[in-house]
Each structure stands twice: as C-alpha cells, then as structure tokens.
Design a protein around this nucleic acid. Structure first.
Lengths: 355, 355
DNA sequence: AGAGAGATTGCATTCGAATGCAATCTATGG
DNA sequence: CCATAGATTGCATTCGAATGCAATCTCTCT
C-alpha cells in the first residue's frame, strides 16, 4: 500500500462529488445497469432489486448525473428562454410563468437576456453547445437565425413575435384585435381626435398595434392621426406628450387631441403623468389614454388604465405545450396560436365597450 | 454495399446533430485530440494544425458539445440562480444584471423561480443532477439547505439574504443603514409621528429594515410607533393605510401619523395611492411616505419616492465575482460584502438629508 | 552535421449513465 | 416434475470531448 501521509486530503478527494451509479451498484451487489434501470421510470426491475438499490443509493447519497445522462440519451432536458429586455415590465411575468410550466415537464430553463436584438448572434452561439431540447424566444430573430434552428433541428417557438414568410411555431396575442377593441371603445364613447404613441419603429408587435389602430380609425372615417414614436419606456411616453402639445402649438390646425392610444401600458402611464403634471389635464375628463398589455401597475389607483390584458397564463402554457410536443415528435407540423386579449376598462379613458 | 432504398431518411439521420470532433478529425486528417486542443484556448497546437482543423470544423459546421465536455472536465459552466418571486418589481433588474455579468464569465444561467420558500427543497433536487458550478440565491434558504451545498462542495452566494450563524458568502445592501438614513431624514425634517409598514414577518430583509428603523427612532426619543404588517405588494401598502386610519379612529390616542416608513417601494406606492384617493391626503404636504429599493416606478412622476436605491449593478457584479472566485478556488474563504444604499430624495416626503 | 531542448501530435483512457442483446430466473400449465 | 413464455439481470458498448504520457518533429546551437 502507498503511504498514508495525508489522509485528510485523500478523504476530501474521495468525497468530492464521487458517488456514481457504480458505487451504488457495488454496495448493493448488483450491476451498474440495474442501478440505472431503477432510476428510470417504467424500466423492468423487480421489487426486490429496486428496494436494495434505492437503499444503497440513499445510504451513499447518490444523485444521478444529468450531464452524463444527457450525453447518452441525447436529451438535455434543457430549454433556452430568450427574452429581449427583462426590465420591460411585461416580461417578468412571462418568464415566471414559462419557468413554472416548463418545470411541470421536468425541464430546466436556461435563461438568455438579449440587451439588444443585435445580441442574437452571440446568444445563439452560446446556446448551441448545450444541445438544448428547444427554445422559446420572446425576442426578435432574423430569418437567418431561424434557419440556424432548422439546420440543427432544434424546436423553436416564438412568443409574441412573428416572422413574415417563414413557417415557425408561435404563440401570440392578437395585437390587431386588441388595437381595434381599444379604438372602437374610444370611438363609441365619442372620441374623434386621436393620437398614437407607438413603439420603436423596428418592433413588430408595435407595428401591428399601430397599423391595426390606424386601419380601424380609417374605417371609422378618421384619417388625420398624428403619430409619435416612442420606445415602450415610461420616459418616452412622458416625453411624447410635450412633443404632441408642441406640434399643436406650432400651427397644426384642428382641435386638441382627446384620445391617446399608446403602444403599451408603461408609455400610457408616462403619458398620464405628463398630462397631469405638466398640463393639468386629468383622465378621463380632459383626455383619454389607453395602453396595452395589462401589466401590474396598470391597475394602480393613480392610473387605472383602460388596456388590453394579454392572457399571459394561457399563452405561456400554450407555448410550453407546443414546444414540448415538438420535442417529443420532431415531425409535428408548425402551428401558430393567437389569443385574443381581454379588455380591461379602467378610468383612464372615456370608453364604451362594444356590445 | 447495402441497398440505398431510402436515401432521404438516411440523410436525415446522418444530419441529425452528428458532427463530432471525430468527424472533424477525419476530414482534417488528424487525431481527435488535436481537434479538442484546437478548441481549447492556450493548448499546444501549431499554427498549421489549427488552420487545418478550423477549416474542417467550419466546413462541417462543428460545434463542441458542452455536455460531453462537462462530463470529463467536471465543470458545467452552469450557475443556478434562485429568485424567490420574480414578479416583485425589484428582481427583474437583479436577474438581468446577474445574467449579464455571468455571461461575461462565459457561464450560463439556469433559472429557478421559487413561488414560495417552501419550494426550496424541490428546487434543490432539480439543481443537483445538473452539477452546476455554483449557485446565487436571492431566496430564503434554511440552514439545512445550506448544509446540502457544503456536503456537495457547491459554492453558494446569497444575494440580500443572511443566515444567522452559518458562514456563507453573501452580498447585500445595508438594510439597517438605509433604514436609519430614512428615519434620520424624516426626523430632521420635523416628523415625530411615525408609522411602519413592514414586510411579511418571515422576511429577513424586512425584519432588518424594521428593526433598524425602530432602534433609530428610539434613539431619537420616539417609542410609540404603530407597526402594520404587509407583504411587499402594492395591495398591502394600499390596504394598510385604512388599517392605520382605522386604528386611529378606534380611540388610539395621539395626533395623526405624519410619516410612513415602508418596507419597500411598491408598498410605499400603494400607500401613496390610498392616501391620495381615499383620504385626500397628498405627500409631502399632509404626510410623508418613504420606500426602499429604488425600483423604476419609484421615479414615476406620480410618486417620486424618497427611497434608498440599492446599488444593484455593483451588488450583482460583486456577487458574480465572488461566486466565480469560489469556483476557481474551492479553498477561498467565505466573505460577506455589504453595500450601502444611496438615498434618493424625491417629493414623497418632507426630508432633510444628513450633513 | 549532430545533439538536445522544447514544441507538437497521437494513443489510450476517462467522465457517468443508458441500452441492445444474451443469459438467467420465475412462474405457469400440462 | 418438466417445458416454456415472460420477466429480470448483467455484459459490453456507446455518447463526445479532454488529457497524461509517450512518440515524433523542429529548430537552435555548437
């Protein structure tokens, strides 16, 4: 035998994460494969065997190594979730719900937060080596990026994003329908002078909301609609109010705007604050403001927004279910699921919900 | 040769994620170990070799398999992040920053969202099999849980949590100091009738804030301080206002409260809304309200909270750096880093910052 | 040109679990 | 009591990359 000079260190090393299925097998006096089978639900194992193995496993504190398992089964039980900007008030709920549902499938979440859409390349490079079973993307990806998924046969589900021509599975909220509901309600309540506070020009969701609103307004005979571009932030909603007021001041004809349709709740909140603080206007008496999403603060008493609440629970559940079925069966066909948002009538607008 | 009946299927199978370092080696006419070395920074490889291998790798679209690598290196490059309730306005920023910093170390984030602290057991069971390199916990863990980490030699860093006796590394904001700053400023501005809106009774952070505030108040000669227990939510902040008013109505002697110290910003916001909407009181004229955290909405014009802004950037950076050093060197000693919060003086309180 | 140090490269093995196949065991029926 | 189908179990191999060690190559210096 070798000298036992430093038993302490040896012990440490021996103790270091070393319990494998072989150790359990040895202690239980069975083969390693038997141990493996005992930990696989539905495998062929006798009750006696299972009892012995489990006892040995418990005694040693054995925990199967998911890494090793993934290697041989070619299933990592990892799903990557891409979120574009987590600090947008809307996403934390989405992320929490996605995580919850994925956990129910015994799948772990590998989180990637894209600061800008330009990060997509770098992020994808980080994802591929981990052989994730699938990806849920609440972020803008280019057709090239999507092609990368197809090349690798990695299932992808978009959350609230579309990609024009390509066939990709997705779950989203019906932005157009929501925008129309909002416009209709405002119109029915008598509003005729609308303004739009939009999202950033490159946001697909923002474009959908804006376009649908404009179309509906036109159908209703309203074509002169001033449009102000923001970026979904509180500050931009706040700032656009003075832009809007300034535009009017500078000789833009016509009566004052009496209804602002914002691309999301946070901008609506910013707008309300600016109107109140800087112009002494209160909603819904002097002006109406509506948002979109139905985030928590939309319900705060100071705002009490009229908005479209996205059915986040159902949407995330659907996204996860869709992804999992794609993972189970790679041949399953693509699908797009579109959920209608629910109108929440607050007091930030004079509003008459359709019949 | 075997029959080529179904070339299509064969192609598909061949194409299925099959590019390994052996394939690259074969194409480049070198050994698999050479390929491996080419992808390991700092390995001994000649320029010629590297060029040939990289060319072959590019041609085949080879991507190293992180799973296989982890198995042999015993390093997963995964770090688990535990967050107690993501929908708390404070956490999204923390999560985003942690992710950003971890990414800088080329480490991936495995996200776990604990709905209730009771989930901790289940969550830990989900973590162990993945052999994460370390864990950052922004969630309450029991001494038993911490012991599990030690048993497995998995580095753990607490974020804004402590554990009385045990020696665990942690990064946190100086809750006591913050609470004192707030109390001092209110006192200097002339407030004498304080009330406390606390977090849930089991929240360590909440207890620290409350205790420190009470101690300071006592030092300042104020001992009769009504305390109302909330749960960090907007609704609880809102609801506690009527509790407070009710308590006064029911014969509780003395003058009305003129300063409310809330356990976090969201409760302060709820309180402000309740005071304004239900009692016609405005801050800071009629009453002062202060919060804690410095979340985004605290800066919204309708609230403009006086609060303690946690230095999230620095804290997350420190947490990640600390964890990484523990991972690099398992012998490194534990450390607790405490950052002072920055006072943000808004208009939600009459307030005189210390000299 | 030859020796020798240092740089490259390949060989063979390892990480830990899953699984096809063959061997063995069990229980049932005749 | 024996044959046989079906259930269990073990053997041997596989997943894909990393690495200690030995073999080979390069290049420098004399």
């Amino acid at each position: 035998m070798a000298e036992k000079t430093q038993p302490k260190i040896i012990d440490l090393k021996a103790n270091r994460q070393a319990v494998t299925s072989y150790d359990v097998a040895r202690l239980a006096g069975v083969s390693q494969s038997a141990v493996s089978r005992c930990f696989k639900p539905g495998a062929s194992v006798s009750a006696k065997m299972r009892a012995r193995v489990m006892a040995a496993a418990a005694e040693l504190g054995y925990e199967p190594n998911a890494i090793a398992r993934s290697l041989i089964t070619r299933r990592s039980n990892l799903v990557a979730v891409l979120i574009s900007n987590l600090t947008n008030l809307y996403y934390p709920e989405v992320l929490a719900e996605l995580t919850r549902h994925l956990t129910a499938y015994d799948v772990r979440v590998l989180l990637f937060s894209l600061e800008s859409e330009a990060d997509a390349n770098a992020t994808l490079q980080q994802i591929w080596p981990y052989r994730v079973d699938g990806v849920i993307a609440a972020a803008e990806l280019s057709p090239n990026h999507v092609a990368e998924f197809e090349k690798r046969h990695v299932p992808l589900v978009f959350y609230n994003r579309q990609l024009n021509g390509t066939s990709v599975s997705s779950v989203s909220c019906d932005q157009e329908d929501g925008a129309r509901q909002l416009v209709d309600g405002l119109f029915h309540a008598g509003h005729r002078r609308f303004a739009l506070f939009t999202g950033p020009r490159e946001s697909v969701v923002g474009i959908e909301r804006k376009t649908a609103a404009l179309e509906r307004l036109e159908e209703l005979g309203i074509d002169e609609v001033p449009i102000f571009e923001g970026n979904y932030s509180y500050e931009s909603g706040y700032g656009l109010v003075s832009d809007m007021m300034g535009a009017r001041a500078h000789g833009n004809e016509g009566a004052p705007v009496d209804a602002i349709v914002c691309a999301n709740d946070v901008m609506a909140i910013g707008a309300l604050d600016a109107l109140r603080a800087d112009y002494g206007l209160t909603a819904p008496e002097d002006i109406s403001v509506v948002g979109f999403d139905g985030v928590g603060p939309a319900r705060w008493r100071s705002y009490d927004l009229t908005t479209i609440r996205q059915p986040v629970r159902r949407m995330t559940e659907a996204a996860v279910a869709m992804l999992m079925s794609m993972i189970e069966d790679p041949e399953v066909s693509h699908e797009k699921r579109v959920f209608s948002g629910l109108l929440r009538a607050g007091t930030s607008a004079r509003f008459t919900a359709g019949d």
